[in-house]
Each structure stands twice: as structure tokens, then as C-alpha cells.
Design a protein around this nucleic acid. Structure first.
Length: 570
DNA sequence: GCCGTTTTCGGCCCGACTGTTTTCAGTCG
């Protein structure tokens, strides 16, 4: 069983135990362990092979949980999980997804009304039987009815691009409200997590009701869910929820820190505060009644003897162990973009237009990388057409000033582990990205063979969007990252962070592993039109989440140095 | 269920808001 399946099993176990009324701290231990496994860079199976006792050295995993995780990893089963599954109907677990219902209320509904499915619950609520239970009323009953459809399509998160776009528009409109001094985005959108489940916005304002009125009237807002003195919760068109919090200036830093999260990062900060006899909450850092910090974030971190930690790193994945502040890669560090398409295949713009747009965007060098023939849907290029295409690029690049252009190719790695174009053609390219597009559902051993054979090909410079995932719509290929990254490192092949917000592939965890192995990362837009370069921002922030400095990213180099890297690696 | 130099028991992060209540439990982030 892979890590993500183990995580799912532990989370399910935690849900089930909660519904059965188990001790809340015990449940939390299971969730903590799930988090720990989730952030591991190695497969549990690999860890166990190296050292069967190593699990207990991980945070929050003791003897008992180590045994359970070992059982899951080795056999894919856990007796305790089977036992509790038998005690709780699957539909009851689904009820946890209904907003406003937690384990206590769901357990009450299940026991008191004998409802076992969402449909049972809907019928009971419609018949008014929910409101008759002690502790429930008419409003709860209605919110259950409203929430059932949400539960049925649960797990819905939006791409970071969608989240940032909506949050940005709303923040901008709030900044126009008289009396509003400052508005900032917080939450997972500020951390640039690849998907967001909701949005958080913070404001300083003398008059919170004016800001809240403006939010309520915003065209993106569909419904006001709750409104108090300091907090308003709304549902946006499309179903995403947004929290607005109005805070005083002296607490702004504390609130911004607090609502940026992650929850796991904040738990550690509050523990560090406690150890120093301090109390941290969204109003500030306090010694008794006295505020030690709170006006700005840096002051809070400083009071806890920490450097200010960039939001992208606040996941409790090692950011507290870094001794010095680190320099993360920024948008302006990026000088090149090595993955884009033209009308030769499925792009919407010509070679000339793409070069011009890249120059306008401020890029100093690019590679044109159209598809190879296997991608027939995109009018992929065979050897003959590709050579003609390159000749055209060569002619055009002579006329282009202020930007360097490489003749590249995005070459498919076929299902039989061969490349889509012959070696003698690839040898003529300035730049070769090899990618998986088809056969992503092959078993792990075949995927591994394909990636490794591409890496070993001397003409391949880079593996593009390694997993092939499309967030929310296509699952990633099953990759053994341990062997994949080792091979890339051994053969000097670069790896791409594809900046398309639906890809963001490598993901943050694997990109961090690649950095540790010294593998050069390239952040590419995969542009299909002249406006496509703007997505580079998402790739940059994914790289920052992985802790990448400018030196870790190959296309922050000058064109001359980048070319030398390609040659050296071949 | 985990954890530990105040430890092997007794803690485990904290506050706003809602709904259903007359003082609070549950949920959420």
C-alpha cells in the first residue's frame, strides 16, 4: 500500500472512531500520524525495508501506530479498520461532510433516527423528524437539507488560480471601501497551496459593517452564511466559501499569521509560545495581559526566536528546523521558459507571436517545444515536419533581437518505453523534453521503465510534467519517485515544474526531494497562446513551497550558463 | 494514542459563531 492510501486509511479510521465516541485525543493521534505519513518523502514500504523499526522515530508515531501502519503498508489491511467499518454504515461517515455537522451530531442522528444514508437523512429532515431531537432545531434541519447536496459532491476544492483570482478581486473591492485601511489575503491561497477549500480575507477597518455590506453585495457572492461583529462568512458563486475578518491594527500581524495557517504550523507556534510562558492567539502574543507582539508577523516570529517564515513554507514540514532565513526563488529571478507550443501543433499563436509575447513578458530566452507525432489530436510532428519547423524557427530567431530561442521538442515517451522520435532527430535538437501523455494508468513497474529509459537517452534534457496529473480531473501516474529521482540525478537530467495551475507537476514534496538530490529544476509555462506566460507565477510559488532557491532553478541562469548546463548534462 | 530533565500519568491549541438554550455544546478554522 502506498503512502496516500495509508493516509486515507488512517483518516477513515479517525472519522470512524470519532463517530463511535472514542477519546478525542486518541482520534487526534491518528490524524497527526496521517499528516506525518503524508509529508514523508519516502514510501513507508521503502522505510520498512531499510529499517523495520524506523517508523517510531517519526513525529507522533509510537509503537501502536507503527504496527498499524506496518500492517497497512505490508498487507493493505488493518483488522481494527475492518472492525470499526463494520460498526458504522458508510452513509453515516458521508454525513460528516455536511457543513455544521460534526461527529457528535452525526452520531446523534444515526442513533436517534436510525438514518444510515444521506437519502435516509434527507427524508427524515424533510419529514421534520430532525428538529424534534433534543439539541436540534428548525434551522439545523434546514441547513442539513441545504448541505446534503454539498456532501454528495464533497471534497470539492478549487485550483489555486481560481482561488487567487476570486480572492484578489474581492480584496480589491474591499480596499475601495471608505474607512478600510488594509486588506490582505490569508489562508491556503496565501500559502499558494495547489488547491483551496475556502478563502480567507483580513481587513483593518474602523467600520466593519461597511466592509461587510460591500462583501455581501459583491457580484461573486451568492449568499451570506453568517455575520457577526468581526467575522462574516459568505458563499461565492460556484460554491466556494469565503471568510472575512475585520481586526484592529495592533492585532493585524497576529491575525494574518493565525489565519494564514497552516493549522499544523500554528499548532507548533502555539506550543513554542507556551514553552516560553506566552499565549498566542489571533489577537497577539501575550505574557499574561501584556501584548508582546501582534502588530506584524515578523514580530511574532522574532519573539519566538524564529526568522519570519514565508507563507509557502508554513506546513510544519521542516520550516522550524531551518536555522537561517532562506532565499526563495522569485518571479523576477526567472529568465527563461523552456516549454511552449505554436500553431505547428496545438498552440494558438505562431512562432513569431510567441517570441514577441515572451519578450514582452520579460523573458531572455525560450524554447519552442511542440508535440511529437504520437499526440495526433494536437497534430504532433513527425521527423520531417519537425525538421521543417526547426528550420523556420532558425530563420525567425535570426531576426529576433533581445531574446534567444531554442529549437526544442516535447517528445512523447511511448507505452513501450521507446521515444516517439528517432535518436538521430533528437540529437539535432537544442532542447528535448520527454513526457508521458498516454498509458498513465499502466502499473508502476511499466511507468518506471518508461521514465528510466527516457532519462537514460543521451538526447533527453528534461522530463516534463512527470506524473501527468490534472488536478481534480486526472490522477497522477503511479511513480516510484525514489528510483525516478535517483536516475534523474545520476544522468544529469533536469525535471520540470510545469506551471499550469491544473498540473503543478512536480508537486511541492517531490520538488523538494529533487532539490536535495541536486537535480536542476526548470519552471515552465507550457504556454499554448501569447497570454500563457502568466501562469509562471504558479510554478514559482510551487517551487517556493518546495523550498527552492534561485540556484536550484536552472532557468534563473543566464542564457549562456543555461546552455552550458544542457551541454554538460548530455 | 503519543509524549516526557517538573514526567510513566495526565496533559494534549484557542476563540468566534450558531443554534438551541437560559448557560452551553458543537462546529469550524
Amino acid at each position: 500500500m502506498g503512502n496516500s492510501q495509508i493516509v486515507a486509511a488512517l483518516e477513515e479510521l479517525a472519522d470512524l472512531l470519532e463517530l463511535l465516541g472514542e477519546n478525542a485525543f486518541r482520534v487526534r493521534a491518528y490524524r497527526n500520524a496521517a499528516r506525518t505519513i503524508e509529508s514523508l518523502s519516502d514510501d513507508v514500504t521503502t522505510l520498512l525495508a531499510d529499517s523495520p523499526t524506523s517508523l517510531t522515530s517519526l513525529d507522533g508515531i509510537g509503537k501502536d501506530l507503527a504496527e498499524k501502519i506496518t500492517s497497512l503498508a505490508r498487507t493493505g489491511t488493518l483488522k481494527q479498520l475492518d472492525d470499526v467499518r463494520a460498526q458504522v454504515p458508510a452513509g453515516v461517515v458521508q454525513m460528516l461532510k455536511i457543513p455544521g455537522l460534526g461527529p457528535k451530531k452525526v452520531a446523534t442522528l444515526w442513533k436517534e433516527l436510525q438514518v444510515h444514508t444521506l437519502e435516509d437523512l434527507q427524508a427524515a429532515a424533510t419529514a421534520g423528524r430532525v428538529a424534534s431531537i433534543k439539541g436540534f432545531g428548525k434551522k439545523t434541519e434546514q441547513s442539513i437539507l441545504d448541505g446534503i447536496s454539498l456532501a454528495q459532491e464533497a471534497g470539492r476544492r478549487v485550483l489555486i488560480s481560481v482561488a487567487r483570482n476570486a480572492a484578489g478581486q474581492i480584496a480589491e473591492s474591499l480596499r475601495q471601501v471608505p474607512g478600510v485601511e488594509r486588506v490582505e489575503i490569508a489562508g491556503s491561497a496565501r500559502r499558494w497551496k495547489e488547491t483551496c477549500g475556502d478563502l480567507d480575507i483580513l481587513a483593518i477597518s474602523a467600520d466593519s459593517s461597511a466592509a461587510m455590506d460591500t462583501l455581501a453585495r459583491h457580484p461573486l457572492v451568492e449568499q451570506v452564511l453568517a455575520r457577526g461583529e468581526t467575522k462574516q462568512q459568505v458563499r461565492l458563486v460556484g460554491g466556494l466559501d469565503l471568510d472575512l475578518r475585520v481586526v484592529p491594527p495592533e492585532s493585524f500581524g497576529a491575525a494574518w499569521q493565525y489565519f494564514t495557517g497552516s493549522k499544523e504550523h500554528n499548532v507548533v507556534l502555539r506550543r513554542l509560545s507556551q514553552e516560553r510562558g506566552l499565549k498566542l492567539n489571533e489577537y497577539g502574543l501575550f505574557r499574561g495581559e501584556e501584548a508582546v507582539a501582534g502588530r506584524d508577523e515578523a514580530g511574532i516570529y522574532a519573539a519566538l526566536d524564529l526568522p519570519w517564515i514565508p507563507p509557502e513554507l508554513r506546513e510544519n514540514r521542516g520550516e522550524f528546523e531551518r536555522l537561517a532565513p532562506i532565499e526563495l526563488v522569485e518571479r523576477q529571478d526567472l529568465r527563461g521558459d523552456l516549454h511552449m507550443h505554436t500553431t505547428a501543433t496545438d498552440g494558438a499563436a505562431t512562432i513569431e507571436e510567441m517570441i514577441e509575447a515572451a519578450k514582452d513578458f520579460g523573458l531572455q530566452y525560450i524554447a519552442i517545444t511542440d508535440h511529437s507525432k504520437r499526440v495526433a489530436m494536437a497534430n504532433g510532428l513527425d521527423s520531417t515536419r519537425l525538421r521543417e519547423h526547426w528550420r523556420r524557427i532558425e530563420a525567425i530567431r535570426k531576426q529576433a533581437h533581445g531574446i534567444e530561442v531554442l529549437c526544442g521538442i516535447e517528445c512523447d515517451i511511448l507505452e513501450d518505453a521507446t521515444l516517439d522520435l528517432p535518436d538521430e532527430v533528437l540529437a539535432e535538437a537544442d532542447w528535448v523534453i520527454a513526457v508521458l501523455h498516454y498509458g498513465l494508468r499502466q502499473p508502476a513497474e511499466l511507468i518506471e521503465q518508461r521514465l528510466l529509459s527516457a532519462i537514460r537517452n543521451p538526447h533527453v534534457d528534461c522530463i516534463g510534467h512527470p506524473s501527468g496529473r490534472l488536478i481534480g480531473s486526472r490522477a497522477p501516474a503511479e511513480i516510484n519517485y525514489t528510483t525516478f529521482l535517483k536516475a534523474a540525478s545520476d544522468h544529469g537530467v533536469m525535471l520540470e515544474i510545469n506551471a499550469n495551475p491544473a498540473r503543478l507537476d512536480l508537486n511541492d514534496i517531490q520538488a523538494a526531494r529533487a532539490k536535495d538530490l541536486g537535480i536542476p529544476i526548470v519552471i515552465n509555462s507550457d504556454s499554448h497562446h501569447t497570454q500563457g506566460f502568466s501562469v509562471l507565477e504558479y510554478g514559482i510559488h510551487q517551487a517556493r513551497r518546495a523550498g527552492l532557491a534561485p540556484a536550484d532553478v536552472a532557468n534563473t541562469r543566464s542564457f549562456g550558463d543555461f546552455r552550458k548546463m544542457i551541454r554538460r548534462n548530455r
